[in-house]
Simulated scan of single mutants.
Amino acid sequence: MTIAEKLLAEWSERTGIAVEVWTRMAGEPGADGMREALGAVLAAVEEGTPPPAVCVALTTGVSGARLTVSHDDVGESWPVERLKAVKEAFRRAGGRVSVNGVAGGGVTVSGVLPRSVLKG
């Protein structure tokens, strides 16, 4: 189990929000940058009206490590402070992120972190 998968399992158990995870990574996500970015996204997801489930994809490619989190929450949209926290976490890790609302409810967060966040 990778660091990210362990973090997701612990978060799911604590919040009661089901997590579906896809991983296809060349290397183990490093503890700092990936954990901070993923933690900021998960904090935003559980704030307000948490969705019953989220889908998380962790992949690697030429540009680095990609993290995509989506859910179908039809409740409140993310507060501006949470969006800023997510963007700042990715920036500190040397990456970039986009946060998009989906028509009818839900959010998709897609970010890329540099290959330096990977070990091995």
Rank of each mutant, 00 (worst) to 15 (best):
V19R: 02
A4F: 13
R92A: 06
A18H: 05
S77Q: 06
G106P: 12
G106N: 13
W78E: 10
G30T: 07
T68C: 05
P29H: 05
R24C: 00
S110R: 08
M34A: 15
R115C: 07
M34Q: 08
I3Q: 07
G27Y: 00
K119C: 02
L118C: 11
I17M: 05
R14D: 10
V86S: 03
T2H: 04
E13L: 07
T68M: 13
G111T: 03
A43W: 03
L113I: 06
V112Y: 00
H71W: 15
N100Q: 13
V69N: 04
T2L: 04
P52T: 04
A18W: 01
V109D: 03
A40Q: 11
G106M: 10
V54E: 11
N100D: 13
S70V: 09
A89K: 08
G39H: 14
A65E: 04
T49L: 01
S70A: 12
S70N: 08
V80N: 04
E5I: 00
A18C: 02
V99L: 06
A57I: 01
E81N: 02
E36F: 09
D73R: 13
G106H: 13
R66C: 06
K119V: 12
M34S: 15
P51M: 08
T60I: 02
K119E: 11
A85P: 02
E20N: 10
G39Q: 09
G33P: 09
E20T: 14
G27V: 03
W78K: 01
G30M: 10
R14P: 01
E10T: 12
R14F: 05
R92V: 09
V97E: 01
L67C: 13
G94K: 05
V107T: 14
A18M: 03
M34V: 15
T108M: 06
V69Y: 00
E36R: 15
K6I: 13
R66S: 11
V62T: 07
S63P: 03
G105R: 12
S12R: 06
D32K: 14
T108G: 01
V19F: 03
T23L: 04
R96F: 00
E47W: 01
H71Y: 14
A9N: 12
K84S: 10
A53D: 14
G30S: 08
M25R: 10
A57H: 04
R91A: 15
T60H: 05
E5R: 15
S116V: 15
A57F: 00
K87V: 06
A37N: 10
T68A: 08
K87R: 12
I17K: 01
M34I: 14
L58F: 10
R92T: 09
S110F: 00
A93T: 07
A4T: 14
R91S: 12
R66M: 08
W78H: 03
S98P: 00
S110E: 09
P79I: 05
G105V: 12
A93S: 13
E76W: 03
A43K: 10
A18R: 10
P79C: 05
V21I: 12
P114F: 01
T23C: 02
G106W: 07
L67P: 00
A43I: 07
L58E: 07
L118W: 00
M34W: 05
A93Y: 04
A93W: 01
I17P: 02
A9D: 15
D32Q: 14
A37P: 13
L113C: 06
G16Y: 04
V41P: 04
C55G: 14
W11C: 05
L83S: 06
N100A: 08
A85D: 11
V56Y: 08
